[in-house]
């Protein structure tokens, strides 16, 4: 087992626990032990664009200081928002030495950040280090005939400086879906914003977006959808329950974390915690032959 330093973020410890359990199992199957970064704090949630107030950069940078103090040159993420916030804060201080100095001066009871830790998303591990061929070799439960819509959202690919794929034509989820033996569905709304934090006080904005995105995927023939962002997942999955209340004819579509799909394909449905998903995915994934549960 190769140990990899891993930053979970708050959602994975709370509402997106199924994201974490399925990711840990996926990693294990590929020979990696995701080692949780000790004493990590909130990533900052949303990268602060305020140019003259560095207070909001302290959180993300301290996480990188922790990684550095443990001798890690990389830190792996799962949540798209954490990934985005940590990468952008990292880029900010790498490109602006004055800001790095100021942040280090503020955190004068902690070690200086040297700007040398690299933040990587779990998808980068799969694509760039493991490779799709090895992912394919680990499939014990091919997801044949399943049509899966890849939903990228905003944070995984934008802005271009930190995105892990082409923001206009991303393919990492498509390639993953193919490697797992299923069919990626091409649909127009794969990078459409889910409505984000409007979900807190303007849920109607999110319901509108959810309807557009889910129906777009359905019309393109999708059986289910995958994502890597706990906020997108909440908006696209849990908000469908509210959507049905105002639009009873809406046909729900399950929205999974991509790691639930990998854990399932690797023969570990028990790590997926499908009961935590609002729209029940088991109606779609149950017919799939499952050697792990059949034994």
């Amino acid at each position: 087992m190769q140990e990899l330093p891993y930053y979970p973020g708050c959602s994975l410890k709370d509402t997106a626990n199924n994201f974490e359990t399925s990711a840990l199992k996926t990693a294990e199957e590929l020979g990696f032990d995701l080692e949780e970064l000790p004493r990590w704090n909130c990533c900052g949630t949303v990268y602060s664009l305020t140019d003259d107030n560095l207070m909001k950069q302290l959180g993300p940078i301290r996480n990188l200081v922790h990684a550095q103090s443990h001798g890690y040159d990389r830190l792996y993420t799962l949540c798209s928002m954490c990934d985005n916030t940590l990468k952008r804060a990292n880029l900010l201080v790498k490109e602006d030495q004055d800001k790095l100095k100021k942040i280090n001066a503020f955190m004068d009871q902690e070690p200086d950040y040297l700007g040398e830790v690299e933040v990587r998303h779990f998808l980068q591990l799969l694509r760039d280090e493991v490779g799709w061929e090895r992912v394919r070799e680990n499939v014990k439960n091919p997801l044949n005939d399943l049509n899966i819509a890849p939903y990228y959202g905003c944070m995984l690919t934008r802005p271009r400086e930190v995105g892990l794929d082409d923001p206009h034509d991303p393919s990492v989820f498509d390639d993953l879906i193919e490697a797992l033996g299923a069919n990626p569905v091409d649909f127009a709304y794969d990078s459409e914003c889910c409505g984000s934090y409007n979900t807190v006080d303007k849920a109607e904005v999110v319901l509108d977006k959810t309807e557009t995105i889910i129906n777009g995927a359905r019309k393109a023939g999708a059986d289910l959808m995958i994502t890597s962002c706990p906020l997108c997942q909440f908006n696209l999955d849990s908000r469908q329950v509210d959507l049905i209340e105002v639009a009873p004819s809406h046909e729900p579509l399950p929205v999974l974390y991509f790691t639930q799909l990998t854990a399932l394909a690797f023969g570990h449905p028990e790590a997926c915690q499908f009961s935590e998903n609002s729209v029940d995915p088991t109606t779609k994934v149950e017919p799939v032959k499952n050697p792990a549960t059949e034994r």
Partner: peptide
């Protein structure tokens, strides 16, 4: 509202 500035710990 916490921004993880760590002032409380200090």
């Amino acid at each position: 509202r916490c921004v993880s500035c760590n002032t409380c710990t200090k």
